[in-house]
Amino acid sequence: MKTVLTNKNISIRTRRRALECYIEPILMYGCEAWTISKQTQKKLEATEMWFLRRMLRISWTAKKTNDTVLEEAHTTSLLISKIRKRQATFFGHVMRREKLENLVTTGMLEGKRSRGKQREKLIEGLTDWLKAGKSLEAIEATKDRKKWRTMIANAVKQGT
């Protein structure tokens, strides 16, 4: 795909579409089950910018900010919001099923907790992104599909 993405005879819009159709699905494979930490988010944003810089043939030594690169590509940084949206739709699907997946996803299992700092759960990352307040509010919102979809749409609009 390097020859297609870096070809200057092809319009930037077409090259961006090729990136979205062929590269992003590979990059986001299985993202519904990821817990995105700050470090992971930075790496994903850096990867997105790396693709755009390669597509525009901007050297890594060039002193261009990410905002300038996004303007040249006529786009905005969307990868994280796409991943969060996919996570939220999958989470809603799992919560409505009310089976074993539901129990595993919420992490409400009996027993002792392990020592040290606890790992972040998927539900915690989603409630922060959706600005739902408590995780129980988000779980209750999944029961009503319309309400859940509007919560997701509002979070995507805010671009966080």
Rank of each mutant, 00 (worst) to 15 (best):
I83V: 08
T6W: 07
D67H: 07
S135I: 10
L52M: 06
K147T: 09
Q87S: 04
G159H: 00
L103Q: 14
S114E: 08
R145L: 13
G159C: 08
A138K: 01
W60Y: 12
T106Q: 15
K117C: 02
R145F: 12
R97S: 14
I26P: 00
L70A: 11
K38C: 09
T76S: 04
T65V: 02
E48I: 04
E48K: 02
H93G: 13
A141H: 05
R119E: 12
L100P: 02
L70V: 06
H74G: 13
R86N: 15
T14V: 05
K85S: 14
F51I: 07
D128E: 11
L52G: 00
T76R: 09
K63I: 05
R149G: 05
A153I: 09
L78Q: 10
K38P: 14
K2Y: 08
L126N: 13
R96Y: 07
K82P: 05
E98Q: 11
W34N: 08
K42E: 15
R145H: 04
E110R: 09
K143I: 13
F51K: 01
R149S: 11
Q39S: 15
R17W: 01
V69C: 06
E110Y: 04
G92D: 06
S37H: 15
G92V: 03
M95I: 07
R115W: 02
L44W: 10
I12M: 00
E124G: 14
I152Q: 04
W148D: 02
M151T: 09
M151Y: 10
A155Q: 04
T68I: 11
L52R: 05
W60S: 14
K82F: 00
E98M: 06
M1D: 15
K42Y: 15
G116F: 03
K99Y: 01
L52P: 00
G107I: 12
L56R: 15
M151P: 09
T150F: 13
S135L: 04
T65G: 14
A33S: 08
E98L: 06
R119D: 06
Q158W: 11
K157S: 10
T89L: 15
V94A: 13
V4C: 07
V156Q: 06
A46S: 09
L122Q: 12
T127W: 01
G116Q: 02
A138S: 14
K131I: 03
E72S: 14
R115H: 00
K121D: 05
E20N: 05
T105F: 14
N102E: 03
M1W: 08
A88W: 08
I123C: 14
W148T: 06
T106N: 12
R86K: 15
A62E: 15
W129P: 11
K146C: 10
S135F: 11
R16V: 00
A153T: 13
G133T: 04
L136V: 06
D128Q: 07
K8E: 09
I10W: 03
K147Y: 05
A46G: 10
L52A: 01
Y22E: 03
Q41H: 08
C21P: 03
T142Q: 00
K63M: 10
K147P: 01
G116T: 00
T6K: 15
L27Y: 09
T47M: 14
